[in-house]
Design a protein around this nucleic acid. Sequence first.
DNA 1: AATATTTGACCGAG
DNA 2: CTCGGTCAAATATT
Length: 281
Amino acid sequence: MASTPRLKREQSFDFEEASAQEAVGSASASYSPPGGGVFGISPPESSPRDGRKRRKDRPSWVKHTFTPHFDGHLWRKYGQKNIKDSAFPRCSYREDRQCPASKLVQQENDDDPPLYMVTYTYEHTCNTTLVPTPDVVAEQPSPAAGDAYLLRFGSAAAAGGGGIHADAQQQTERERQQQYQQHSARRPFMMLSFDSGSHLHEQPHAFPPDGQLPAAAASPSSFTAAEALLPPAPPLTTTMNDGGDLFSTWDALRYGLDDDHGHLGNHVYLPDDCNGDDDNY
DNA sequence: AATATTTGACCGAG
DNA sequence: CTCGGTCAAATATT
C-alpha cells in the first residue's frame, strides 16, 4: 500500500442542539455553561440529519482561563492550526470519539501566564474521565471594573452538577498520572481578584455549583499580578469531596516523593504553546 | 509495544 | 476563494 487515499470522513457528529446555547461562538461572550453547568450532561437526541450542523449553530461557549486543561476532563489533542488573526496557534482537543464535546484552545496573549481562550463545543455525553480538577478562570467580574480580573480556583467536578466518579472506568496509568498532574494546581473554593492597582484581594469562596459568573468581556490587556496564579499549596489537603483520596495521594507524590521538578513555586504551569498542556501540569 | 502528539491534507462554512 | 475545524497517517515519547 503505497499511499492510503484519505477516505471520505464521515462527520459522525451531527448532533442537533445540545441545549439552549446563546453564546454561539461569540468570542466576546464570556462563559455561558449550558444548563447552568459546564458539564450539564444532556444526551444528544437522534439528530434529524438534514445535512451537517452549521458551525454557527453548534452549541459553544467561550471561557477564558490560564489553565485550559483544568476543566475536569482529559482531552486529547487532535489538531493545531495557525489562525490568521492570531499570533498563536489554535489547538483542538477532543475527549473521546464517542463524545461530541470538543474544545479549542487559543492563546490570547503572551503574558507571563498567558491567558487562553477556550471554546467549548457541545457537551459531554460520556461520563468518563471526569476528574475533580480545579478550574482556574480569569474573567472580568464586571464591565465597570474594567481592569479587575477574577481568578477562580474551582472544582470542575463540583461544578459539573453530576459529580460522576467513573472509577469503574479502566484508566491507564498514564491517564491517572495526568490526572494527578492536573491536580497540582488544586486550590478549590478560592477566588482571587486582581486589580489593576496591584491590589490583590483574596478570599475563600465556595462558588455555586452552577459556576455562573457575571458576564464578562475578555480583553486581557491590563492583566497583571499573574505571579500569584498558582500558589504552592501546603501538603495538607484532604478536605475535598470524593476526590480526597486522589488529592492526598497526589500530595504524597508531590511533596513527599518530590523529585527534581516538583516545584510548585514556579508559575510555569502553562505550556509554551497549546501543545504540552497535559504534560506540563 | 502502546499511546499520545505532530503534521499535512481534506472539506465545509463564510 | 479563503479560513478554520477535523481527520488520519506519521512520528515521538513513555
